[in-house]
Structure formats: C-alpha cells, structure tokens
C-alpha cells in the first residue's frame, strides 16, 4: 500500500528549476532512498513533502490527503531530520528532547518514557544531562534523529543524516534506521553516499538535476545497465592488439588503461571472464592480477549521467 504518492512535483527558485515534475511513491513500511549528487533536488523534494516548501505544481498525497492543500494531515505523523543539526546547543539533551516532545503534544509520563526509550535507541542515555554544545558531532547527529522519533511517527524523513561524522557514529545511525524500519516505520532517506543507500534502502530513486533518472531496487537498477562490472587486469608482455581484441568481444562495453591497470567494463555474462583469459593466453601475455568489481549504484549513475555521484 502506498503511504505517500508524489505526482509531477515542481519547484523553481527564480530562474533555476530545482525539481522538474518528479513522480514517485513510498510504500508503507519501506525505506526509500533518494540518491543523487549535491544540487540534484533531493532536499527541495523532501522539504515539499515535509510541508516546509510549497510546490509550484504537482501533488503530494499522504494517506489519501493532498498535503499541499492540507499540511496538517502529515505534520503530526511525520518525523523530520534536517541536514543541519537543528537543536538548541545551550540546552541539555534532555531539555531538547522535552521541548520537541511537548511540541508534538507529548506530556507527563508518556513524554518521560519516550525520552528514555529514544535516548536508548540513539545511544545517548548517559549524556542526557549534558549541554548539547559539549556533544561530539556524531552524538549531535544522533540526537538530531532522536528528536524526530519522540512522537513515534508513521513516516520519517532523513535528509543526509550522516554528513560529517565518524564511521562509528555513521554505523550506529544506519543500524538505528534499520531497527526503526523493522519496527514498522516508513523511511525516506536522502544521501549522496551510495554505500548508505545500498545498505539501507529497499527501493531507490536516483535523482539528478531535478529529475528522477532511475527508480527501483538495487538489483533492478543494476539490471538497467546490463549488470555492467569492471574487470581490472594487470598484465605483462602485451600490446594494443590484445586490448583491441578484448574490446571487440560482444560482452565488453569499453576498455581503458589507468595507472598501469587495464579496466574493461563488461556485461553480465558467465562466459566473458573465461574468454578474456583465453585471449590473454593466446597472445602470450602473463596475468599478474585480476579483479572483478561487482556493479554498484555508482556505476548506474555513471552510466546514466556520464558523471560520478560525488563530481
């Protein structure tokens, strides 16, 4: 069942069209990833879903209600984790949680209980009384997420929640998101880190220049580029005739030299590796090393746009 349906959503800032009529949906209980480089339109898209921005055109239907016309329909059920650390640094972690909990109508024992639960989930229970300004970057990020969980929202939107933190905190956050999803929470997760999206998301929308250029599960997206993988070879006693012969193979997309290595982009084909090894042997060259890199979303993005995700 679709929890959220976005149709032909558009938003411009003066002459710049930040979002160009995108359409996608979010199923109940899934983690949907919005993957794209900086400036792809991810934050603008989720700001419109979070009712912070009014779209120029299009509709956002949440549980059957158009939230562009009726923002209140989503506000009480939405947890929003902005990219920035939107907390009061001069207050303690507990004071922050209390303020945001009350803002969502929690009070008394319910609020107290939720603060305890959430601080356990995000792993800051022992630092609750300290001022937020004394927290590490990772702890602030975790509290930033915790604030959005207090009212037990049906849908949580996370806008690049791991920017600028250490790997340990990042892993903690990713595990937390998975845990929340297992408990039934629907998540929209934006990032320009391919690994995070691959790890977390059951479905992914790849955005670039205000458009969704591909959508599906990781496997479906890779299929869209014929499962292309990189075959990395280090050879001795070879010349360009061998490379030309390899490139002529129907399952080889391209071949190039890079820092002494030969990188062949190859299609999903069980025979291809054996064929290439045979060609090398016939040519009399020696294989010093060979490595097959599995296809990933970076490859998908590269193939679709001709650019890297972090260009």
């Amino acid at each position: 069942m679709n929890l959220l349906t976005v149709t032909n959503l558009e938003k411009s800032y003066k002459k710049i069209k930040a979002v160009k009529g995108i359409t996608f949906h979010v199923k109940q209980g899934e983690v949907l990833g919005l993957l794209g480089p900086n400036g792809a339109g991810k934050s603008t898209t989720i700001s419109m879903i979070a009712t912070l921005l009014k779209p120029d055109a299009g509709e956002v239907i949440y549980n059957g209600t158009d939230i562009v016309k009726n923002p209140k329909a989503i506000q009480e059920n939405l947890g929003y984790v902005p990219q920035e650390i939107a907390l009061y640094p001069m207050l303690s972690g507990k004071e922050n949680l209390m303020f945001w909990g009350r803002a969502y109508g929690l009070k008394g024992n319910t609020l107290k209980k939720r603060i305890e639960e959430v601080s356990e989930i995000i792993g800051i229970a022992d630092r609750l009384k300290d001022k937020v300004k004394t927290y590490s970057g990772g702890m602030k990020r975790r509290l930033n997420i915790g604030v959005a969980l207090l009212h037990n929202p049906e849908l949580i939107i996370m806008d690049e929640p791991t920017v600028g933190i250490d790997p340990q905190s990042r892993n903690h956050i990713l595990d937390t998101v998975l845990k929340l999803n297992k408990q039934g929470m629907t998540v929209i997760y934006t990032s320009h880190y391919m690994e995070e999206v691959e790890f977390l998301c059951s479905r992914i929308c790849i955005m670039d220049q205000g458009e969704i250029i591909a959508e599906g599960s990781k496997e479906e997206l890779i299929k869209q580029i014929d499962g292309a993988r990189d075959l990395k070879l280090r050879l001795e006693n070879y010349d360009d005739t061998l490379l030309a012969k390899i490139e002529a193979h129907p399952s080889v997309v391209s071949i190039e030299k890079s820092d002494g290595d030969i990188i062949a982009k190859i299609k999903q084909d069980t025979q291809i590796i054996k064929d290439i090894v045979d060609m090398i042997n016939e040519h009399g060259a020696s294989i010093m090393s060979m490595d097959v890199e599995e296809p990933n979303l970076e490859a998908v993005f590269l193939q679709l746009t001709g650019r890297m995700l972090r260009d």
């Binding site: 009712t51 912070l52 506000q75 009480e76 939107a86 945001w100």
Partner: peptide, 13 residues
Amino acid sequence: QNRVWARQLVGPI
C-alpha cells in the same frame, strides 16, 4: 540559521 525554526514549522504548532 540553525534550522530549528524550520523544524518547528514541520511540526503541528
């Protein structure tokens, strides 16, 4: 500046 205002706007207040 800290986006706290925006975060409040997203809520039901």
